[in-house]
Design a protein around this nucleic acid. Structure first.
Lengths: 246, 246
DNA sequence: CAGTGGTCTAGACCACCGG
DNA sequence: CGGTGGTCTAGACCACTGT
C-alpha cells in the first residue's frame, strides 16, 4: 500500500494526503457519516504537521467529500454530495462526465465583425477589429445535443484552423497548449427559448420546440476574457446540473 | 479609520482582515488587476502572522475578489467576477439579489403520501409516512415568476403552519429558527418544459408556453436532506445565473 | 473534564518570476 | 539576484461538544 506520504514526491504532502483519504472514501473503507481520525491522530499516523493535515481536509471539504462539526469531528459526506458537478467544463468534458461520446459537426469557422453584444462580452474596446467565430453542432453518442456558437478575441497571429479543431476536438486543449490560456472561471446564464426554423432543422426538431439557451463568458488565469459561448441545447435531450453551496 | 485588527473582536483576525481588504476593493481604493501589498508587507502593516494573512487572502480568492500569480503577486479581480451568484439561495433571497420585491400566494399546504420520485429525493425508506407539501405562486414585484412545490420529510411534531409561513415568508428562516436546520448544500437540475393548462392559468400565460423547470434537493449542515423543491419559472421572466470555477 | 475542530504565531525552505 | 506566493513545522490557546 502506498499509503504513506513521500516528502520527495513532486506532489505537495497535503495533496498526497488528500488523495489517500479520497481513495479510502471512494473505496468504501470510510463510510458516509462515519468520522475520520482526528487531526491529532492523523498527525501521528502520517508524520506531518497539523497545518498540513488541515490543508488536506480543507481541500476535501471544499470538494464535498468531508464535512466538519466543531467540537465533534470530521465526517464523510454521503455519496450523493460527492459528485463534482457545476464545475467549469467544456462541452467535451461535460459529455464524457455523462457517459456519452462527444462529437461535433463544424458548420463554419472564420473571422467576423462582432455584434455589439458579443464585443461587450469579450470586453473589447469599441471599434475593435474582427473576432474568431466558430459554429458547431454538438453531438452526444452521435445525436445532436445542441448548437454552439463561440467567439474569441484573438489577435491576427493567434488563430485556430478548422484542421486543428477537427483533429484535437476540444478548443480548451488548443487554448491551453498553443496559447497557454487556462480557463479558470466563468459566468453563465440559462434561459428558455423556442427554436427558429434554421435552428430546428440543424437540431432535427420541429420549429418552435423549446430550447435551453446557455450563454457563458469564460475567464483565464489572468482574469481576462477568453471566450463567449452560446449553446442552444435540445430541450428534450439536455438537463443542466449544478451544485450549490453556502 | 477602523482599519486595524482588534485581537479582542469577536470576529477572527483573518476574517477582520478579509473585511478590510474587501471594503477597499469595493471602495475602489484597490483597482482591478492592481496588486495588493505582498504577504510579508501585510504581515507588518496589520501585525498578524503570515498564516493569518494567507487565510484572509484564501477567503477572498474563493469569493472571487482576488487572484494570485505565483512568483508575481496577488491582484484584484475585475468587478464582473465579484458577484456572488450561484450560491445556495432561497427564492426570497434570489429575488432580493435581483432587486425585486419577493412575494407569494400560498395555494395549498398539507400532508400527503409522497410520489415515489419525491420519496427517493427525500431519502426516506420505502413505506414511510406522509410528507409536508407546500404549493405556492412566487412573485417578483407582485408579478408571477414561478410555481413552486416543496416537500419536507418532517415528523409529525415538527410542522409548519400556513400562518407561520405567511408571517415569516421564508421557509429557510423557519427551518433555521424552529428546527435548527441550516441549508448548506444543494444539488439542482434545470430543464425546459411546456406549461400545462393548469400551470398556464396559475402563471397567467398561454398553455404550451416554455418554462424553466428547476428541481433542487437541499442538504443540512449534517448532510441530511432537508427539502425537495420544484420550481416552474416563466420562461419570459426568469434567467438563471451561475458562476463556475475549476 | 478530555477530546474535537478553529485560530494564531514565528520561523523555515521551496518554486517561480522579474531584472 | 531579491521578491513573490506555496508549502511546512512545532508549538500554543480558544470555542465547542460530549460524559
Amino acid at each position: 500500500m502506498p499509503e504513506i506520504i513521500d516528502p520527495n514526491d513532486f506532489l505537495p504532502r497535503y495533496h498526497q494526503l488528500a488523495n489517500i483519504l479520497r481513495e479510502q472514501i471512494s473505496n468504501g473503507k470510510l463510510e458516509a457519516h462515519q468520522p475520520i481520525p482526528s487531526e491529532r491522530q492523523l498527525e501521528m499516523i502520517y508524520s506531518v504537521s497539523r497545518t498540513t493535515i488541515r490543508q488536506a481536509i480543507d481541500l476535501l471539504v471544499r470538494q464535498g467529500f468531508l464535512y466538519r462539526e466543531h467540537g465533534r469531528g470530521t465526517y464523510v459526506s454521503p455519496q450523493k454530495l460527492q459528485k463534482g458537478i457545476s464545475e467549469l467544463t467544456s462541452f467535451t468534458e461535460d459529455m464524457k462526465q455523462r457517459g456519452l461520446v462527444p462529437g461535433q459537426k463544424i458548420l463554419e469557422i472564420g473571422y467576423i465583425q462582432p455584434p455589439e453584444k458579443v464585443r461587450q462580452h469579450l470586453e473589447l474596446p469599441e471599434g475593435s477589429g474582427q473576432v474568431l467565430r466558430i459554429e458547431r453542432i454538438r453531438l452526444g453518442d452521435g445525436v445532436p445535443m445542441g448548437l454552439q456558437t463561440s467567439f474569441y478575441g484573438l489577435t491576427g497571429e493567434q488563430t485556430i484552423t478548422q484542421e486543428e479543431l477537427e483533429e484535437v476536438g476540444s478548443i480548451y486543449r488548443i487554448l491551453q497548449e498553443k496559447f497557454h490560456l487556462i480557463p479558470t472561471e466563468a459566468d453563465e446564464t440559462l434561459e428558455v427559448t423556442l427554436a427558429t426554423p434554421r435552428e430546428a432543422s440543424l437540431l432535427q426538431i420541429e420549429p418552435g420546440s423549446p430550447l435551453l439557451l446557455s450563454e457563458r463568458t469564460t475567464y483565464s488565469q489572468y482574469r481576462r476574457v477568453i471566450e463567449f459561448v452560446k449553446i442552444l441545447y435540445r430541450g428534450d435531450r439536455y438537463r443542466y446540473l449544478a451544485k450549490l453551496t453556502r
